[in-house]
């Protein structure tokens, strides 16, 4: 069982940072919706406030980790230019996708959108986390503010989901694997 270094980095970017970011945003959405159902704001212990702050900080941090690792580690491998005359384009995903009109759309539409739209999510979630942590009382008592946070969280979820979906589909059609520098995960017994 082997994985290339680039494949491992891409998995960390997408499946660790990206997927956990989506999960944690969903948690924020659930919490905001729950608060809409409260007849009066619930009392929070110091421990609950601390855990809520940690959760929100982790959410924003995961978002930044996802976009930064994507833009500065995985994307350069994806968009690397193959040497002139290269026949096997497998190590150069962007060139591989663009080499066929059947797959070119994954780059011209999918990656072109994904690489930009993803950045909305950490910006929005940083704002949501900051307001949630610094203005805890107002979030629980001002419906307008709660609605604002809900809409921004929804926008973050939408942009992260679009980026994640296209990332997964693009990697399925043209995996970022590079010229294999394999990491052995497990030796076969057969």
């Amino acid at each position: 069982m082997q994985i290339s270094l680039r494949g491992l980095a891409t998995s960390i970017h997408g499946m660790l940072f990206g997927a956990f970011f989506l999960l944690t945003i969903f948690g924020v959405l659930v919490e905001l919706c729950r608060q809409f159902g409260e007849t009066r704001p619930a009392e929070q212990s110091a421990r609950a406030r601390l855990l809520e702050s940690l959760y929100l900080t982790a959410t924003a941090a995961l978002g930044w980790a996802a976009v930064l690792s994507g833009a500065y580690i995985v994307f350069p491998w994806y968009r690397a230019v193959p040497p002139a005359g290269a026949i096997n384009l497998e190590p150069w995903p962007q060139a591989l996708l663009r080499s066929s009109r059947l797959t070119a759309g994954w780059h011209t539409f999918g990656m072109e959108w994904k690489e930009h739209v993803a950045w909305f999510a950490p910006m929005a979630m940083t704002t949501v986390a900051w307001i949630f942590i610094r203005y805890r009382t107002q979030v629980r008592t001002v419906p307008h503010l709660r609605t604002a946070l809900l809409l921004f969280t929804l926008a973050a979820f939408g942009s992260a989901a679009a980026a994640g979906l296209f990332g997964a589909m693009i990697n399925k059609h043209a995996p970022v694997a590079g010229i294999r520098t394999a990491i052995n995960i497990m030796e076969s017994t057969r």
């Binding site: 910006m123 900051w130 203005y135 009382t137 107002q138 001002v142």
Partner: peptide, 25 residues
């Protein structure tokens, strides 16, 4: 949009910085 704190009855801080964060995003 600036309520009293339910516990103390005191006014909570102004929400200008919150609006700033929202608009800046």
């Amino acid at each position: 949009s600036r309520p009293s704190s339910p516990a103390s009855g005191q006014q909570t801080p102004p929400v200008g910085p919150v609006a700033a964060a929202i608009l800046a995003t």
